[in-house]
């Protein structure tokens, strides 16, 4: 077939190009620009090459933050995914209680991040917070501002409270799509409850669970507001996650060069992990068929 050549058609993609340029490419390039330069103020910049990247890679502070970040994301995934699935399995399938549960489950998802942080910040205080006061009264030494373990428990429980609903709702959607005949056939085949889960429910939920894991990984890896409002990264730097550290560096100390290098590596790490995850998932899926 003869193709019509009309170079003017390129103009049709221009609006999208402009939009993407302003929303993604230009900001990212600005960061790249900062990461390879040094400044002493007065808007005077000097070429620094890959010096900042090298410095950041040798910096224990960044490795520490990365380690804490991986620990945080890993822990919340290990809790939220099984818990979300468990909740979804136990939610009513239909009727008024199903709707009630759905509304109840979505409530935490509707609360702005900084409000979630504030809620837990107050909730955990020993003087006016219900949780802190109760634990204190029970004789448990709980103080998230001075005790690293308490601080960690607080931000993890907070994240579980905030986001398990998302996993549960996605898993619930997956469960709802399973036709009744599957459960009936399982009864005829005399399958145990565990086998029904293992061979019917889990395979049918796999697709949405993968999305849930990916979403929760990316979101938790970039988390900033909630832990910052509760602990401010403390006590010391025990709860300083990557983004908190980055903001301290970029805005607190105004070390633009290192912060920019840090940002780019941060971005690449998320991209890399997500890509590895995605590839593994797709391959698992292929091997299955």
């Amino acid at each position: 077939m003869e193709k019509t050549v009309n170079q003017k058609a390129w103009f049709l993609v221009l609006p999208v190009l402009i939009l993407v340029a302003f929303s993604a490419v230009i900001p990212l390039m600005t960061v790249v620009n900062y990461s390879v330069q040094d400044t002493f103020g007065n808007n005077q910049f000097f070429w620094a090459g890959l010096e900042w990247f090298g410095e950041m890679l040798r910096d224990d502070r960044m490795w520490g933050a990365l380690g804490r970040q991986l620990f945080f994301s890993g822990t919340i995934l290990l809790i939220q995914i099984p818990l979300g699935v468990f909740v979804a399995l136990n939610m009513p399938k239909k009727g008024i209680w199903a709707s009630f549960c759905l509304v109840l489950m979505s409530l935490p998802l509707l609360i702005p991040w900084n409000v979630v942080g504030t809620i837990w910040q107050i909730f955990g205080r020993a003087d006016i917070g219900l949780l802190g006061y109760t634990l204190d009264a029970l004789g448990i030494d709980y103080n998230y501002t001075s005790d690293a373990v308490a601080a960690w428990v607080t931000i993890i429980v907070m994240d579980v409270w905030h986001w398990t609903s998302l996993v549960a709702l996605l898993a619930y959607a997956g469960l709802q799509s399973i036709p009744d005949a599957y459960y009936q056939a399982a009864k005829i085949d005399q399958a145990s409850r565990w086998k029904v889960f293992r061979f019917i429910e889990l395979p049918k939920m796999m697709g949405v669970l993968m999305i849930a894991i990916l979403l929760r990984f990316m979101d938790s890896f970039m988390i900033y507001t909630e832990p910052f409002v509760v602990t401010g990264g403390g006590p010391g730097s025990t709860t300083t996650l990557l983004s908190i550290d980055l903001v301290k560096m970029a805005l607190g100390q105004f070390d633009l060069g290192p912060a920019a290098a840090f940002s780019i590596m941060y971005f690449l790490v998320i991209l890399l992990i997500s890509w590895v995850f995605y590839t593994v998932m797709v391959n698992l899926d292929k091997r299955g068929s």
Partner: peptide, 17 residues
Amino acid sequence: TAKRNIAQVFQFPVVYD
């Protein structure tokens, strides 16, 4: 169902994927 020892085949295929 398990006690009745009955086999049943449904209208739409049910396989364990």
